[in-house]
């Protein structure tokens, strides 16, 4: 099955509330984006802004008691309504690489059992075949001694080895959609390039769609067609990746671009965005970024700006057109 509009995943006005101490708190609201087969969407943004929750909502892995509104459709079907066999077959097509592999891989089971379980139970692959495929994929992600690794337990693997085990397991089932939550943070840059090259090939050869959560804007711009930026539970900008990096339109995005330390030069003091990070539920009433924005005006506090279409994407800032071109210069000091 496939959606008529060529979108494999379509998220529209997604909102998620989680129970905290007896009340519901908003962690996501009005999140909309889509990904087609073979496409990669980057997702960057503030720590705590809801990137992982977005991926978990799509994977149907939200914490107990979560309330979801809006729609998530996959290949034309409503994901939030899936049950039983339909949910199982959805899970067989959509794989997730978790941000914190150690928290998601059972510490008392062997790596081999973890990696081959889904293949054997959901896809009916024999044990010997599953093991051979696992070893092959481990080799591709730069783990040469796969046979020995399959016999080991998680505590015997380094952070980056375990992260690659998680990536390889996700790819073993040949997903049509991969939700990758900071999948290369524990990898050296050379190994990261190996992994990204594999994901690139899978997109081109098999049309795998990719949601790629990262903090590395350069990496996102190199591997993703479009990149979306999250702040306090909502998307504030979505653009083609190179444009987002070279010509950011939202003041928060510009702040991010300007905060990065440099590898090829010295910066005495990094230009962090002033103020404390904001959760969705405590964001100010108008523009969520208003209280930390250096371009704020009175009118910014009045109403929440909509996500407005602009050339190659969308931006949620009422001054975007007016400020265009001025943001980068203001972003970096020192």
């Amino acid at each position: 099955m496939s959606a008529a509009d060529g979108r494999l995943l379509d998220v529209a006005s997604l909102a998620v509330q989680l129970p905290v101490g007896g009340e519901l708190r908003t962690v996501l609201h009005d999140v909309s984006f889509h990904i087609g087969p073979g496409e990669a969407l980057g997702l960057v943004g503030e720590s705590g802004s809801g990137k992982s929750m977005t991926a978990r909502a799509i994977a149907r892995l939200l914490p107990a008691g979560a309330v979801t509104t809006g729609t998530i459709s996959y290949a034309g079907g409503d994901v939030t309504a899936l049950k039983g066999a339909a949910l199982r077959s959805y899970r067989a097509e959509v794989a997730m690489v978790f941000q914190d592999p150690r928290a998601h891989i059972n510490p008392v089971r062997r790596i081999g059992d973890f990696m081959t379980e889904a293949l054997r139970t959901n896809h009916g692959v024999s044990k010997a075949d599953a093991v051979a495929r696992a070893i092959g994929l481990l080799a591709e992600v730069g783990i040469a001694d796969g046979q020995r690794r399959l016999e080991q337990h998680p505590h015997e693997l380094s952070g980056g080895l375990l992260q690659r085990v998680m990536i390889a397991s996700a790819l073993l089932t040949e997903p049509r959609l991969l939700l990758a939550d900071e999948p290369t943070t524990a990898l050296d840059v050379t190994t990261q390039a190996d992994v990204m090259a594999i994901l690139d090939d899978l997109r081109r050869e098999r049309g795998m769609a990719l949601l790629f959560i990262t903090h590395d804007l350069e990496l996102a711009s190199a591997v993703c067609d479009r990149t979306a930026v999250m702040y306090a539970g909502q998307l504030v900008e979505q653009r083609t990746s190179s444009q987002l990096h070279d010509d950011p339109l939202h003041p928060y995005t510009a702040g991010l671009v300007g905060a990065r330390p440099r590898i090829d030069g010295d910066v005495t003091r990094l230009a962090a965005i002033p103020g404390r990070p904001r959760s969705a539920y405590e964001a100010p009433a108008g523009c969520a970024f208003a209280d930390r924005c250096e371009h704020v005006e009175d009118a910014c506090g009045e109403a929440r700006p909509p996500l407005e279409p602009i050339e190659d994407g969308f931006v949620r800032c009422r001054r975007a057109t007016e400020l265009r071109g001025m943001l980068r210069a203001g972003g970096r000091h020192g």
């Binding site: 960057v44 503030e46 720590s47 524990a186 903090h215 905060a259 990065r260 003091r269 230009a271 962090a272």
Partner: peptide
């Protein structure tokens, strides 16, 4: 040990400035 790897670059900048 990879202690600022999970931070977005702006909060990372705050923490790196703090460490300095």
């Amino acid at each position: 040990d990879e202690s600022v790897a999970a931070l977005d670059v702006s909060i990372q900048a705050q923490v790196l400035n703090l460490l300095a």
